[in-house]
Amino acid sequence: MRALVVDYGMGNLGSLLALLERLHHQGVVWSHGTPPPGYDLVILPGVGSMQAAFDQLHERELLEPLLDLHRREVPILGICLGLQLFFESSEEGNGRGLGFLPGRVVALKANRVPHMGWNTVRFRAHPLFKGLTPSSAFYFVHSYRVAPEQGEIVYGETEYEQEWFPSVVVAPPLVGVQFHPELSGPVGRQWLDNYFREMV
């Protein structure tokens, strides 16, 4: 399949493009304005702050095209900051999101942030988790978490310092993950393969 990978200056895309290649999909970098023609889905990656992300999307004239793609129900996969951007606003510097889903982005309560490293996901039965177990670990790096208004879109949760937060959100054609499948070894590869098979 052909995935548009949004490049808005929030983290490098090398690991994601390499993983797409290993899965025999084509990653097309989209950095400015009108989307390149011919695509099956959009991947919105990124790490960092939502405020900076929104400004970058605006500056690179990616905001309107993204809203348009969403209106046309093109599948969008949000990774880390990409998941957070699905929501309306962030308490981090009054950052704005794309507003695809009702809810906010709030700071983790943890004493030690970022939440950095490998952690497991308590997931609801869904083909996205085929071949994975409750002990399958993914790589996380973030200091904020999503707080969706609709609990039913949360398909996976993760615990850090006694706080449970949504790590997988499924609201077709939107899917978002707080972890980084592209940095999560064989488990991340399996998850992304499931995503392509089941959700696109």
């Binding site: 090398g14 790589y139 790096v141 999560s184």
Partner: peptide, 10 residues
Amino acid sequence: AQARRRVDIP
């Protein structure tokens, strides 16, 4: 850059 193509961890 070469390593990035093969290393799927941070």
